[in-house]
Amino acid sequence: MNRLVALWLVCAALPAAAQDARKSGFAFMGPDTQAMQTDDLANPGMLFVLEGDALWKAPVGASQKSCASCHGDAPQTMKGVAARYPDFDEATQAPIDLAGRIIQCRAERQGAAPPQREGHELLALTSYVAHQSRDLAIAPAQDARLASARAQGAALYSTRMGQLNFSCAQCHDDNAGGHLGAAPIPQAHPTGYPLYRLEWQALGSLQRRFRNCLSGMRAEPISAGSADAIALELFLMDRATGMKLETPAVRP
C-alpha cells in the first residue's frame, strides 16, 4: 500500500519535471568529459579560478587597490553575481556583461590598464567571480531597462545569417540532440562560462563561442563586448533562468 502511494507521488510529480526539457551542455557529453568537469583536481578550468583568486587579492594600478580592497571576500560578496549578469550599467546607461564590469572596475576604480577581452587576466578574474555562483540557479537581473536589449538578442537568435543561412534557433532549438557530423548539438544554455573547451585547449568566453558558431555559418562575427553580443547573452541567460551555473564547465 505504501508502495502504491509512493508510486502515485512519483507519477504526480513527473509532469512538473517533464515540463522542463532544458538540458545543460553537460548532459550531451561523454562520461569522461563529465568526470573531468566534476572533479576539481582534473578540471583544467580550476587553474584559471585559482589564478583569479590570486588576482582578486593583488593590488594593481594607480590606486594600488585590489578587488578585495572594495569587495572583500569573494565567496561571500560575489555569490550570485554571475547568476544575475548581464546587468544594466548606470554609468553608460547600457547593458554590461560580467567581463565588461571587470574591465570597468580595473580601468576606472583601480586605475589599472584595462584587461583585454579573451586575455588571460580577464578570463581568470571572470571565471573566479563566476565560480562563486557555481550550483546557484540563473536569476537574470529584473531591470526593465534590459528588456529592449533582451528582445534584440531574441531577434538575433532567430535571424538567419551567413552564407549557410542558418539561425541559432534552427540548430539549438529545432535540432538540438542531433549531430552535425560527429558533434552533438546542445541546446545552447550558457551555464558554464567561462569554460574550458577541449577543442580550444583553453578557457574561453561565451562570446568566443558565438564567434565559433558564426564562423562555421560563414557569417560576420559578433565582436566581443559589442551591443549585439551582450544582447544575445542577455537573451540566452534569460532562456536559461533557473538552470544551475557550472563555472568553470568543461566542454568537448
Partner: peptide, 21 residues
C-alpha cells in the same frame, strides 16, 4: 521556407555574410 539546407547558388537576401564569402 524553414529548411536548414544552405542555398548553394544564392547571394541576395543573405544576412551578415562574412567578408571572405
Amino acid at each position: 521556407e524553414k529548411t536548414i539546407m544552405p542555398p548553394y547558388y544564392k547571394m541576395d537576401g543573405l544576412g551578415r555574410v562574412a567578408a571572405s564569402y
